[in-house]
Design a protein around this nucleic acid. Sequence first.
DNA 1: CTAACTGCAAATTCTTTGCATTAGT
DNA 2: ACTAATGCAAAGAATTTGCAGTTAG
Lengths: 152, 152
Amino acid sequence: MRAHELWNRGLHGRGYRLTIPRKAILEVLSNSDDHLSAEDIYIMVHGLYPTIGLTTVYRTLDLLVQMGVVYKFDFGDGRARYELMDHFSKKAHHHHLICTSCKTIIDYDDFLDEELDLIHKTENALSNRHNFEIKGHTMQFYGLCDKCSKRF
Amino acid sequence: MRAHELWNRGLHGRGYRLTIPRKAILEVLSNSDDHLSAEDIYIMVHGLYPTIGLTTVYRTLDLLVQMGVVYKFDFGDGRARYELMDHFSKKAHHHHLICTSCKTIIDYDDFLDEELDLIHKTENALSNRHNFEIKGHTMQFYGLCDKCSKRF
DNA sequence: CTAACTGCAAATTCTTTGCATTAGT
DNA sequence: ACTAATGCAAAGAATTTGCAGTTAG
C-alpha cells in the first residue's frame, strides 16, 4: 500500500520510528473517506488497540500533517478534521461547499472539466514562482444553502 | 459603505439590533486587510471603546459569519482568523500557499488570468446545481516551501 | 416597555505538556 | 543499549455560557 510505504520511508528519513499506534492510525485514515476528527480517529483506533491513547493520536496526526501525508481542516466547528492528502487518497480533490449558517458541508466532486485543468496549471505556476513542492490543495465555497437562504 | 448598509439590513431582518459594539467591530474589520484573530479585533475595538469585552467580540463574529459577512479561517495555529467576505473586501480573493512543515503562509494574488474566470464559472455552476447562494470562496495549496523541502 | 444585548467570571472543550515507563532498531 | 515513543494525568488556551444589569427600537 502506497501511503504506508512512503510514510515508513519518511519516518526513517527523519529518525522517527514505525510503531503499532502509527501504523494503526494511518490504517484508519486510509480506510475512510470522511473528515475525521481526532476523537473519531481515537475511537476507531482504540477499537483495534485499546491501549492507544488520545495523546498519541494527536501526536501522530501532527507528524502526518508536517510530513504532508494528511490535511488538517477546520470547518469552524471548533474541532479539526483530518483526511489523507490527494496523492494517497482515493479522492483526488477536496472541494467543499459550506453553508455558513447551518454549517452543512457538501463534498462536491462533480467538477467542471476546466476546473481540474486549471488547478494543475495553477499548481505548476505556483510551484515555479514560489519554489514550493506542492502536495495538495483545497477549495471551499461559502454561502447560504437553500433552506437558510429562504429563512430570511 | 456597502458592508455596513447590508449588515444593518440583515440584522433588522432577523430581529437583531444594531449596537455600538457591533458597529465598531465591523468598522475594524472593514479597515483591515489582514487575517485578524478574535483577540486582535478585541484589542483594536477596545482601543476605541474600552467598555467592549472579548465575549461580545466572539458573539458578534459568530453573527457575522452566520450572516455570510465575514470568513472564519483556521490555519492550524489554534486560533481562528476573521476577514471580510469577498464582496465587502478590498481584496476579492483569498488564495493561500501553505507550508505544512514550518506553517509559512503565502497570501498570493498574482493569479493566472484563467483562474479568476474559472472561479466565477464554478461558482455559477455550483450555485445552480446545489441551490446555494454563494458569497465567497477560498483556495489553498499545501506543500513544502523551499527551505523545508531541502531539509529532507 | 420589552426583548435583545452586554460584560464579567466561571465553565467547557479541544489540544498540548511533563514525566516515568515501554519498546523500536 | 540508546532514544524515541507512549499513556496518563495535569496544564493550557481559545471559545462559550450563565446571569444580572443595560440599552436599542
